[in-house]
Protein backbone atom coordinates (compact mmCIF):
# COMPACT_ATOMS: atom_id res chain seq x y z
CA UNK A 1 0.00 0.00 0.00
CA UNK A 2 1.54 3.26 -1.18
CA UNK A 3 0.49 6.06 1.17
CA UNK A 4 2.17 8.77 -0.92
CA UNK A 5 -0.80 8.37 -3.28
CA UNK A 6 -2.92 10.03 -0.61
CA UNK A 7 -0.55 12.99 -0.18
CA UNK A 8 -1.72 16.55 -0.69
CA UNK A 9 -0.13 18.42 -3.58
CA UNK A 10 1.60 15.60 -5.43
CA UNK A 11 -0.95 12.87 -4.65
CA UNK A 12 -4.72 12.61 -4.64
CA UNK A 13 -5.14 14.28 -1.21
CA UNK A 14 -6.56 17.53 -2.60
CA UNK A 15 -9.05 15.73 -4.82
CA UNK A 16 -10.15 13.49 -1.94
CA UNK A 17 -10.53 16.53 0.33
CA UNK A 18 -12.75 18.16 -2.30
CA UNK A 19 -14.79 14.95 -2.47
CA UNK A 20 -15.09 14.92 1.32
CA UNK A 21 -16.38 18.52 1.26
CA UNK A 22 -19.05 17.50 -1.26
CA UNK A 23 -20.00 14.52 0.94
CA UNK A 24 -20.25 16.72 4.04
CA UNK A 25 -22.21 19.45 2.25
CA UNK A 26 -24.60 16.87 0.79
CA UNK A 27 -25.12 15.16 4.14
CA UNK A 28 -25.59 18.48 5.98
CA UNK A 29 -28.07 19.91 3.47
CA UNK A 30 -30.03 16.63 3.38
CA UNK A 31 -30.18 16.50 7.18
CA UNK A 32 -31.42 20.11 7.40
CA UNK A 33 -34.08 19.54 4.75
CA UNK A 34 -35.02 16.14 6.18
CA UNK A 35 -35.28 17.35 9.77
CA UNK A 36 -37.52 20.23 8.69
CA UNK A 37 -39.70 17.86 6.64
CA UNK A 38 -39.78 15.38 9.53
CA UNK A 39 -40.82 17.98 12.09
CA UNK A 40 -43.55 19.28 9.79
CA UNK A 41 -44.65 15.74 9.00
CA UNK A 42 -44.85 14.78 12.66
CA UNK A 43 -46.90 17.89 13.48
CA UNK A 44 -49.35 17.08 10.70
CA UNK A 45 -49.44 13.38 11.59
CA UNK A 46 -50.28 14.14 15.24
CA UNK A 47 -52.79 16.85 14.34
CA UNK A 48 -56.56 16.34 14.13
CA UNK A 49 -56.55 16.72 10.36
CA UNK A 50 -57.27 13.08 9.51
CA UNK A 51 -56.72 13.22 5.75
CA UNK A 52 -53.48 15.15 6.02
CA UNK A 53 -52.25 12.78 8.72
CA UNK A 54 -53.03 9.81 6.46
CA UNK A 55 -51.11 11.42 3.60
CA UNK A 56 -48.09 11.93 5.82
CA UNK A 57 -48.36 8.33 6.95
CA UNK A 58 -48.42 7.17 3.35
CA UNK A 59 -45.44 9.35 2.49
CA UNK A 60 -43.51 7.84 5.41
CA UNK A 61 -44.24 4.27 4.34
CA UNK A 62 -43.33 4.88 0.70
CA UNK A 63 -40.12 6.78 1.42
CA UNK A 64 -38.95 4.23 3.96
CA UNK A 65 -39.72 1.31 1.66
CA UNK A 66 -38.05 2.42 -1.56
CA UNK A 67 -34.31 2.01 -2.07
CA UNK A 68 -32.50 5.38 -1.93
CA UNK A 69 -31.06 4.67 -5.37
CA UNK A 70 -34.56 4.50 -6.85
CA UNK A 71 -35.55 7.79 -5.21
CA UNK A 72 -32.36 9.42 -6.48
CA UNK A 73 -32.99 8.28 -10.06
CA UNK A 74 -36.61 9.36 -9.91
CA UNK A 75 -35.63 12.83 -8.68
CA UNK A 76 -32.60 13.33 -10.92
CA UNK A 77 -34.18 12.25 -14.21
CA UNK A 78 -37.83 12.73 -13.33
CA UNK A 79 -37.45 16.29 -12.09
CA UNK A 80 -35.60 17.52 -15.16
CA UNK A 81 -38.27 16.20 -17.50
CA UNK A 82 -41.08 17.46 -15.28
CA UNK A 83 -39.48 20.91 -15.03
CA UNK A 84 -38.94 21.07 -18.78
CA UNK A 85 -42.54 20.11 -19.43
CA UNK A 86 -43.69 22.66 -16.86
CA UNK A 87 -41.63 25.52 -18.27
CA UNK A 88 -42.12 24.82 -21.97
CA UNK A 89 -45.45 26.71 -22.18
CA UNK A 90 -43.66 29.81 -20.87
CA UNK A 91 -41.30 29.77 -23.82
CA UNK A 92 -38.38 28.49 -21.79
CA UNK A 93 -36.82 25.56 -23.55
CA UNK A 94 -33.19 26.08 -22.66
CA UNK A 95 -31.28 23.94 -20.23
CA UNK A 96 -33.44 23.25 -17.28
CA UNK A 97 -31.44 20.79 -15.30
CA UNK A 98 -31.47 19.99 -11.64
CA UNK A 99 -27.87 19.21 -10.85
CA UNK A 100 -26.68 16.05 -9.17
CA UNK A 101 -25.98 17.76 -5.85
CA UNK A 102 -29.44 19.25 -5.40
CA UNK A 103 -31.13 16.15 -6.76
CA UNK A 104 -29.22 14.22 -4.10
CA UNK A 105 -30.20 16.68 -1.37
CA UNK A 106 -33.85 16.46 -2.39
CA UNK A 107 -33.88 12.65 -2.66
CA UNK A 108 -31.90 11.83 0.47
CA UNK A 109 -33.57 14.67 2.38
CA UNK A 110 -37.00 13.27 1.55
CA UNK A 111 -36.00 9.82 2.81
CA UNK A 112 -34.36 11.34 5.88
CA UNK A 113 -37.54 13.32 6.50
CA UNK A 114 -39.68 10.18 6.53
CA UNK A 115 -37.50 8.61 9.22
CA UNK A 116 -37.32 11.88 11.19
CA UNK A 117 -41.08 12.21 11.16
CA UNK A 118 -41.34 8.84 12.91
CA UNK A 119 -38.74 9.86 15.52
CA UNK A 120 -40.49 13.18 16.19
CA UNK A 121 -43.88 11.50 16.54
CA UNK A 122 -42.45 9.19 19.16
CA UNK A 123 -40.79 12.10 20.92
CA UNK A 124 -44.01 14.18 21.05
CA UNK A 125 -45.85 11.20 22.49
CA UNK A 126 -43.13 10.78 25.14
CA UNK A 127 -43.47 14.33 26.49
CA UNK A 128 -45.11 13.92 29.92
CA UNK A 129 -48.43 15.64 30.59
CA UNK A 130 -47.17 17.42 33.73
CA UNK A 131 -45.25 20.34 32.21
CA UNK A 132 -47.97 20.89 29.59
CA UNK A 133 -50.64 21.04 32.31
CA UNK A 134 -48.46 23.43 34.28
CA UNK A 135 -48.11 25.67 31.23
CA UNK A 136 -51.87 25.61 30.72
CA UNK A 137 -52.43 26.43 34.40
CA UNK A 138 -50.13 29.43 34.01
CA UNK A 139 -52.34 30.60 31.17
CA UNK A 140 -49.78 30.07 28.43
CA UNK A 141 -51.36 30.02 24.97
CA UNK A 142 -50.98 26.94 22.71
CA UNK A 143 -48.23 28.33 20.45
CA UNK A 144 -45.91 29.59 23.23
CA UNK A 145 -46.57 26.34 25.11
CA UNK A 146 -45.48 24.39 22.07
CA UNK A 147 -42.36 26.49 21.38
CA UNK A 148 -41.14 26.90 24.97
CA UNK A 149 -42.30 23.67 26.63
CA UNK A 150 -43.31 20.84 24.34
CA UNK A 151 -40.74 21.25 21.55
CA UNK A 152 -37.64 21.51 23.80
CA UNK A 153 -38.74 18.46 25.79
CA UNK A 154 -39.56 16.50 22.62
CA UNK A 155 -36.18 17.43 21.13
CA UNK A 156 -34.48 15.93 24.14
CA UNK A 157 -36.28 12.63 23.55
CA UNK A 158 -35.74 12.80 19.78
CA UNK A 159 -32.05 13.62 19.86
CA UNK A 160 -30.54 10.12 20.05
CA UNK A 161 -32.78 8.93 17.24
CA UNK A 162 -32.04 12.01 15.13
CA UNK A 163 -28.29 11.66 15.55
CA UNK A 164 -28.48 8.03 14.54
CA UNK A 165 -30.33 9.07 11.39
CA UNK A 166 -27.49 11.47 10.57
CA UNK A 167 -25.17 8.46 10.35
CA UNK A 168 -27.70 6.57 8.21
CA UNK A 169 -27.92 9.53 5.85
CA UNK A 170 -24.15 10.03 5.72
CA UNK A 171 -23.88 6.40 4.63
CA UNK A 172 -26.44 6.95 1.88
CA UNK A 173 -24.54 9.86 0.28
CA UNK A 174 -22.22 7.70 -1.90
CA UNK A 175 -25.28 6.55 -3.86
CA UNK A 176 -25.63 10.03 -5.39
CA UNK A 177 -22.43 9.27 -7.32
CA UNK A 178 -24.64 7.07 -9.52
CA UNK A 179 -25.96 10.29 -11.10
CA UNK A 180 -22.49 11.79 -11.37
CA UNK A 181 -21.86 13.63 -8.11
CA UNK A 182 -18.15 13.88 -7.28
CA UNK A 183 -18.36 12.82 -3.66
CA UNK A 184 -15.64 11.20 -1.56
CA UNK A 185 -16.27 7.64 -2.74
CA UNK A 186 -16.53 8.70 -6.37
CA UNK A 187 -13.19 10.53 -6.18
CA UNK A 188 -11.67 7.46 -4.52
CA UNK A 189 -12.96 5.39 -7.44
CA UNK A 190 -11.52 7.86 -9.99
CA UNK A 191 -8.19 7.80 -8.20
CA UNK A 192 -8.32 4.00 -8.36
CA UNK A 193 -9.04 4.07 -12.08
CA UNK A 194 -6.20 6.48 -12.75
CA UNK A 195 -3.58 4.80 -10.55
CA UNK A 196 -4.97 1.22 -10.42
CA UNK A 197 -4.52 1.31 -6.63
CA UNK A 198 -8.22 0.85 -5.92
CA UNK A 199 -7.75 -0.82 -2.57
CA UNK A 200 -5.65 2.01 -1.08
CA UNK A 201 -8.25 4.61 -1.97
CA UNK A 202 -11.31 2.61 -0.93
CA UNK A 203 -9.72 1.78 2.43
CA UNK A 204 -8.85 5.45 2.94
CA UNK A 205 -12.46 6.43 2.14
CA UNK A 206 -13.75 3.75 4.50
CA UNK A 207 -11.55 5.12 7.29
CA UNK A 208 -12.97 8.60 6.74
CA UNK A 209 -16.59 7.36 6.89
CA UNK A 210 -15.86 5.43 10.09
CA UNK A 211 -14.20 8.45 11.73
CA UNK A 212 -17.14 10.66 10.78
CA UNK A 213 -19.66 8.15 12.18
CA UNK A 214 -17.64 7.79 15.39
CA UNK A 215 -17.51 11.58 15.74
CA UNK A 216 -21.29 11.82 15.38
CA UNK A 217 -21.84 9.12 18.01
CA UNK A 218 -19.40 10.89 20.33
CA UNK A 219 -21.32 14.16 20.02
CA UNK A 220 -24.56 12.25 20.52
CA UNK A 221 -23.26 10.79 23.79
CA UNK A 222 -22.10 14.18 25.04
CA UNK A 223 -25.35 15.95 24.24
CA UNK A 224 -27.37 13.20 25.82
CA UNK A 225 -25.37 13.27 29.03
CA UNK A 226 -25.62 17.02 29.20
CA UNK A 227 -29.34 17.00 28.47
CA UNK A 228 -30.08 14.43 31.15
CA UNK A 229 -28.00 16.38 33.67
CA UNK A 230 -29.86 19.55 32.72
CA UNK A 231 -33.22 17.87 33.09
CA UNK A 232 -32.14 16.18 36.27
CA UNK A 233 -33.27 12.89 34.76
Amino acid sequence: MDLSLLAFGSGWGDALARGLLVTLALAAASVVLGTALGLGGALVATSRRRTAARLVGGYEVVMRSLPELLVIFAVYYGFSFALQALLAPFGVDGFVAIDAFWAGVLAIGMVHGAYCSEVFRGAFAAVPAGPLEAAAALGLRPLPTFVTVKLPLALRFALPGLMNLVVVTLKATPLVAAVGLEDLLRVAGDAGKNTKHYLTFYLAALAVYLVLAAAIWLVEGRIERRASKFLGA
Binding site: V167, L170, K171, A172, L175, L185, Y209, L210, A213, A214
Partner: peptide, 10 residues
Protein backbone atom coordinates in the same frame (compact mmCIF):
# COMPACT_ATOMS: atom_id res chain seq x y z
CA UNK B 1 -19.68 0.09 15.15
CA UNK B 2 -17.88 -0.99 11.97
CA UNK B 3 -20.97 -2.04 10.06
CA UNK B 4 -23.17 0.75 11.43
CA UNK B 5 -20.57 3.28 10.25
CA UNK B 6 -19.39 1.83 6.91
CA UNK B 7 -21.40 2.64 3.77
CA UNK B 8 -22.78 -0.56 2.24
CA UNK B 9 -21.32 0.32 -1.14
CA UNK B 10 -17.81 0.41 0.34
Amino acid sequence: LFFRGAPLLV
